[in-house]
Simulated assay, not measured.
Amino acid sequence: MQTTTDLRGNDGSLLTVLKTLLIFTIMMITLPIGLYFATKSYVFQGSLGYSSNDSCFYAAIVAVVAVHMILALFVYAAWNEGAQQTRVGKQD
């Protein structure tokens, strides 16, 4: 049977997990879309002078790379968070 201190510890870790998930969800929505439009307009069309089709293609590549980087960061954060909980939870 769990005591109230155990439940409070679980609530704290649950809030930490939900906060991490919320941060990465917001990053997953905003960063790739923002990078797509910013690189399309300012970098590829503005600075480099690419055509509209070419700039869309290269901006999409930038957005896909951003998605993969965010996913890698999420896996890294989740892995470290699990390792911390294991170390804290196994104090005998």
Rank of each mutant, 00 (worst) to 15 (best):
M1A: 07
M1R: 03
M1W: 01
M1D: 07
Q2P: 04
T4N: 04
T4H: 02
T4E: 10
T4Y: 10
T5M: 08
D6C: 04
L7Q: 08
R8P: 01
N10A: 12
N10V: 05
G12S: 09
G12A: 10
G12P: 01
S13P: 01
S13F: 03
L14Y: 00
L14G: 06
L14I: 11
L14R: 10
L15C: 01
L15R: 15
L15F: 13
L15A: 12
T16R: 02
K19W: 00
T20I: 06
L21W: 01
I23E: 03
M27H: 00
M28C: 04
I29P: 00
L31F: 13
Y36P: 08
Y36L: 14
F37T: 11
F37L: 10
A38D: 10
T39P: 05
T39R: 00
K40S: 08
K40T: 05
S41Q: 10
Y42F: 15
V43L: 13
V43M: 04
F44E: 06
Q45C: 04
G46S: 10
G46A: 12
S47W: 11
Y50H: 12
Y50M: 13
N53L: 15
D54V: 08
F57K: 13
Y58P: 02
A59I: 11
A59M: 11
A60N: 09
V62K: 00
V62Y: 11
A63W: 07
A63F: 07
V64P: 00
V65R: 00
A66K: 03
A66L: 04
A66V: 12
V67C: 14
H68P: 02
M69A: 14
I70G: 00
L71Q: 12
L71K: 11
F74M: 13
A77T: 08
A78I: 10
A78R: 04
A78N: 07
W79L: 12
W79Q: 09
N80A: 14
N80I: 06
E81Y: 06
E81H: 11
G82T: 15
G82W: 06
G82S: 15
A83R: 13
A83L: 13
Q84Y: 08
Q84R: 12
Q85D: 06
Q85K: 10
T86F: 13
T86W: 12
R87A: 11
V88L: 10
V88M: 09
V88I: 14
G89F: 11
K90G: 15
K90D: 15
Q91L: 13
D92Y: 13
